[in-house]
Amino acid sequence: MSVADVSLRRAGEVPVERAPRFPRKPKGISGRSIAIIVFLTICAAFFCVPLYIIITTSFKTMEQVREGAIFSLPAPFTLDAWWSAWDTACSGIRCDGLKVGFWNSMAILFPSLILSIALSSVTGYALALWNVRWANTFLFVLFICAFVPFQIIMIPLIILSSGLKVYGTIWGIAIVHAVLAMPFLTLVFRNYYKGIPQEIMSAAMMDSGSFWRVFVEIILPMSGNILIVVLILQITSIWNDFLLGLTFGGLGTQPMSVVLANVVITTTGEAAYNENMAAALLTAIPPLFIYFVLGKFFVQGITAGAIKG
């Protein structure tokens, strides 16, 4: 829900940007603005100080980490921890580093994306633009389902997926991702498609009237914005997911987040803090990258329809 809040706020900003510019009076420094700056600096430090420690520690040697001065700069500066995190860190007795999990995550990401987006976009399209019996009831049920925490239905899902013979496979993870994302994504798609003018649908019905042809040839080409939004939401949530990958992953299909946990978490074993920090940063890079590249489209997509009042 927090994503929606953020996007709502962002959506609110856009019209202001587009409004004609009026010259503003330059403001002097008032007590109020100083207070705001101090507050923002504290907020920024709150996030930046731990980040600073994570980044500097990842470039230190273990000898320096043992000294315990966590704010000191790396001396000597070394990339060893990054290499070992990527290439040789142990997850169980397999010591091939995080790259194993990286490729597993990639292998999980694509089927999960395709499956979840296909399922929910078609459902959203049907609910918004076709006369489906019990459509509102169905929508209400989906809405309720969006609030069911995964942990409650975890064991039943395990039993179901093992009945379907997909437990412990990449497809098992993909199907569960698709099913769990369906309520929220369907609502997003449905609201977006509701905004399509009735005239377009009427014309399309006259021309073809086929459920699938209208969807593929008319509706999909109009869905660029919302697809970007959903893509970003799904990529981040699938990449950052831990519990699904852990529970349904089984042998050799553990995603990067689980491999990261395997590398980092230890109870009675020795801890290589520099390697742990590097491993955490490596795992965070892909979603960050997606945000930087597609972030602009995300705001556009949200404002173009969907959640906009």
Binding site: G92, S162, N262
Partner: peptide, 23 residues
């Protein structure tokens, strides 16, 4: 065949899940 899940939750959730899944 190695299967490592280093989370000492005390409740052995992952092991229980594997048993439940028939695996």
């Amino acid at each position: 065949t190695d299967l490592a899940i280093p989370h000492d939750s005390g409740a052995s959730v992952s092991l229980v899940n594997l048993v439940t899944g028939g695996n």
